[in-house]
């Protein structure tokens, strides 16, 4: 990649995502109001907040599923602009897991995973299949390889979605409320995979309400409200000593369950 400003291989601790003063409008609705956020390599960031606060929109701006209108977003040294090449480069480096899974229903489980590596990274089929099988093992569904996504349970489907995202060997993984669409008994199996992923050193940004997960692996928790970050802290500090009123109110609402 030849665009100016590319960094050499990032070392641990180097900033891998830098967002400065990010604004976005949907028509006249100001959904993101000057968000600043920095993530270092290997960190796990949890973003929580009430619905409509813009948290999903924000992480979707990072991989250009939404377009930000003001401010800068830099991922792994590449700035996210209208440059097609930059956009594609960034999208290859980021993996995303959706609330609705969004698996490809017309392809088998194994083909869901191998599709992108074969067509985008130009791997051979054998290499792709081998990596896919390793990933299926890692997320715990090796026996489902020849089935279709529709035949899997919700928890298995989301784990497949994680495997599909990992197949491109991304540097960053984004999770947009990965467990919100799951039945309660299946949440744990997905969170376990995410915990393993975090502990293996993946850089992750997770939008979720699962506070147990946050306590376990998050480096920082950000509270989003009204289009911006209200406060952020380490998990211990965040839960025990929230500073803002809005944070306290939100915590009281979600922690009483």
């Amino acid at each position: 990649m030849m665009s100016e400003g590319i960094m050499e291989q990032s070392e641990t601790g180097e900033q891998i995502i830098q967002c400065r003063d990010v604004h976005k409008w949907f028509g006249t609705f100001h959904v993101l109001r000057g968000v600043d956020l920095t993530v270092r390599k290997g960190e796990v960031i949890v973003i929580c907040g009430p619905s409509g606060s813009g948290k999903s929109t924000f992480i979707r701006c990072i991989n250009r599923l939404e377009e930000h209108q003001k401010g800068t977003i830099v991922v792994d040294g590449i700035e996210l602009t209208n440059d097609l090449r930059n956009i594609h480069a960034i999208q290859r480096e980021i993996g995303m897991v959706f609330q609705q899974f969004n698996l490809f229903p017309h392809l088998k489980v194994i083909d869901n995973i191998t599709l992108a590596p074969i067509w985008v990274r130009r791997w051979s089929k054998d290499r792709a299949v081998k990596i896919a099988e390793q990933l299926l093992n890692r997320v715990g569904i090796p026996e489902q390889a020849q089935k279709y996504p529709g035949q899997l349970s919700g928890g298995q489907q989301q784990r497949l979605a994680i495997a599909r995202a990992l197949a491109m060997q991304p540097k960053i993984m984004l999770f947009d409320e990965p467990t919100s669409a799951l039945d309660p008994e299946m949440i744990k199996e997905v969170l376990d995979v995410m915990v393993e992923l975090a502990e293996s050193g993946m850089t992750m940004i997770v939008v979720t309400h699962e506070m147990g997960f946050a306590k376990q692996v998050a480096n920082r928790i950000y509270f989003f409200d009204d289009g911006n970050i209200v406060e952020y802290n380490t998990p211990e500090e965040f839960f025990l000593k929230p500073r803002e009123e809005r944070t306290k109110k939100f915590l009281s609402q979600i922690l009483t369950h």
Partner: peptide, 13 residues
């Protein structure tokens, strides 16, 4: 569904 478009883009196609 729109999610299919997004998933395809997210995975780099």
């Amino acid at each position: 569904p729109r999610g299919q478009y997004e998933a395809a883009q997210a995975v780099g196609l």
